[in-house]
């Protein structure tokens, strides 16, 4: 017997929290894959710390989503029993770790956004989201600092690290646009000052990214085509494999406690 998937009712506020929770869970899970395999022990520590921060954010956001939904779901039901098409994370988060350059560039692109996002969300009219934002903002600030320093060192390090860092930027660039999108479901929340309009963060994000990339002697791609779909459950092929692993225990042993 296998635990069946659940479907959640996605009223706007609940969906809003769920999306951000999924971002944090998937990205945190990706980083946790490095544990024991990083280029230096000090980096094992750092990546694990970032992963723990993100997983913590995911847990708080899932708990809030469950509370708002009011149907008896919880963080584990959301994380372990929704199938790929119900997941609402950014495509950027689910991209495979690749080499260290890919992981750090992915982190940099995301954290540069998250830092701005959480700072803006500290002004949310929703006290729970504002409180989560206050905590997450400090974490994201550190993630941005750490990943920026690595992007600089990889870009302006050796020829090989430069090549790899540039390849990572080229590969991941098309996934950055999705961070700034919002849809009808979020429009109401934005108008009510519960959610920030992510499009308003784009200019500052670009400024930060351009600055670090330049210092790293790297270049941003000219292409403006952006991938999207994650927010609506249209994921890359990577997410299915990730969820197979993440969910395996709960799917194999339905209805028991761990």
């Amino acid at each position: 017997m296998v635990a069946p998937s659940i479907k959640v009712s996605e009223a706007p506020l609940m969906l809003y929290a769920l999306r951000r929770a999924d971002d944090a869970l998937i990205l945190g899970h990706r980083l946790s894959e490095w544990c024991g395999h990083a280029p230096a022990l000090e980096e094992d520590m750092a990546l694990a710390n970032i992963a723990l921060d993100l997983l913590g954010q995911a847990r708080e956001l899932y708990s809030y989503a469950a509370e708002v939904e009011g149907k008896g779901n919880d963080e584990d039901k959301f994380a372990y029993l929704r199938d790929v098409r119900q997941y609402r994370n950014l495509l950027l988060a689910e991209q495979p770790n690749g080499d260290f350059a890919h992981t750090l560039v992915r982190q940099f692109f995301y954290s540069a956004f998250a830092d701005l996002y959480w700072r803006a969300m500290m002004q949310s009219r929703n006290p729970t989201l504002a409180a989560i934002a206050a905590k997450s903002e400090k974490e994201s600030a550190y993630h941005l600092r750490h990943s920026s320093e690595w992007v600089i060192r990889l870009g302006d390090g050796t020829q090989e690290s430069h090549r790899r860092a540039q390849a990572a930027i080229d590969d991941l660039w098309a996934f950055t646009g999705e961070m700034f999108e919002s849809d009808e479901a979020e429009r109401g929340l934005i108008d009510a000052a519960v959610a920030v309009d992510p499009a308003t963060l784009k200019q500052q994000w670009l400024k930060t990214v351009t600055g670090i990339v330049a210092e790293a002697t790297l270049v941003l791609p000219k292409s403006v085509w952006m991938q999207e779909g994650g927010r609506h459950g249209r994921h890359s092929e990577h997410l299915g494999h990730l969820l197979s692993e993440l969910q395996s225990m709960q799917r194999t042993f339905p209805g028991v406690r761990w």
Partner: peptide
């Protein structure tokens, strides 16, 4: 870590393994 059966177990295990790295250091 990637197959921990709940989020609580996941963070506890990741923190534990991280501690072991720290001990090595």
């Amino acid at each position: 870590i990637t197959r921990a059966p709940t989020l609580r177990r996941k963070v506890a295990l990741l923190a534990k393994v991280q501690d072991e790295c720290g001990h090595g250091l």
